Amino acid sequence: MDSATTIWLVAFFAVTFYIASMVAKITRRQQPTARRRPPPPVSPGVPLLGDVPALLIKGPSALIRDHYTRLGSVFTVRLFHLKLTFLVGPDVSRHFYQGLDSEMSQDEVSQFTIPTFGPGIAFDVDYATRHEQFRFFGDAMKPAKLRTYVSLMVGEVESHFARWGESGTVDLKQELEHLVTLITSRCLFGVAVREKMFGEVGTLLRQLNDGMRLVTILFPHLPIPAHRRRDAARARLGEIFTEIVRSRKMSRRNDDDDGNQQDMLQCLIDSRYKDGRGTTEAEVVGMLVAALFAGQHNSSSAGT
Rank of each mutant, 00 (worst) to 15 (best):
A122Q: 11
R228D: 05
R135L: 13
D124L: 05
P225F: 06
A122F: 10
K173H: 15
R206V: 00
R234I: 01
V157M: 15
P225A: 08
H227Y: 08
V201I: 10
D124Q: 03
R186W: 06
E175F: 06
R228P: 07
V170T: 04
E239K: 13
G138W: 01
S159R: 06
T242G: 15
H131A: 12
A140C: 05
F123D: 01
Q207K: 14
R228S: 02
H227I: 10
R213K: 14
R213M: 12
R130G: 04
D210C: 05
L146I: 12
Y149Q: 07
S159W: 02
V201L: 09
G211V: 02
E177W: 12
R130I: 03
T148F: 00
T169C: 05
R163S: 12
A144E: 15
E200M: 07
W164P: 01
L176I: 12
R194W: 09
A232K: 14
R234H: 08
L176A: 06
L218Y: 04
V193Q: 08
V150D: 00
E166R: 08
R186G: 07
E200K: 14
V154A: 11
Q174L: 11
D124E: 08
F137S: 04
G211L: 01
R147H: 11
T216C: 06
E158F: 13
R163I: 03
G168S: 07
S159E: 03
R228E: 04
S167T: 15
G190C: 08
S167Y: 12
A235Y: 05
G168Q: 03
G165M: 01
L218G: 05
F161L: 04
L182M: 14
H160S: 08
R135G: 13
G202Q: 13
A235F: 09
D126E: 14
R130K: 08
H178A: 05
D124I: 05
A192N: 12
V193F: 02
M197K: 11
L237N: 02
R135S: 14
V191G: 00
T203Q: 14
C187N: 12
A235R: 13
D124N: 13
G202F: 13
R194Y: 09
A122C: 12
P225I: 09
R206I: 03
E200S: 10
E175Y: 02
E175K: 05
L188F: 11
L188T: 03
A192L: 06
L182C: 14
F134N: 15
P220W: 06
P220H: 00
V170N: 03
L152K: 11
P220A: 02
H221F: 07
D139S: 09
G211F: 04
S167D: 14
V193W: 00
G168E: 01
L188S: 09
M212D: 10
L222S: 02
E239T: 15
R135I: 09
T181W: 09
R130M: 10
T181F: 14
H178E: 01
S185T: 15
Q207W: 07
P143Y: 00
Q207M: 11
V150S: 07
E132G: 05
H178S: 10
L222Y: 05
M197F: 09
D231Y: 01
E195W: 00
P143H: 09
G155Q: 06
R229I: 05
A192S: 15
A122P: 03
I217D: 08
K145A: 15
D231A: 13
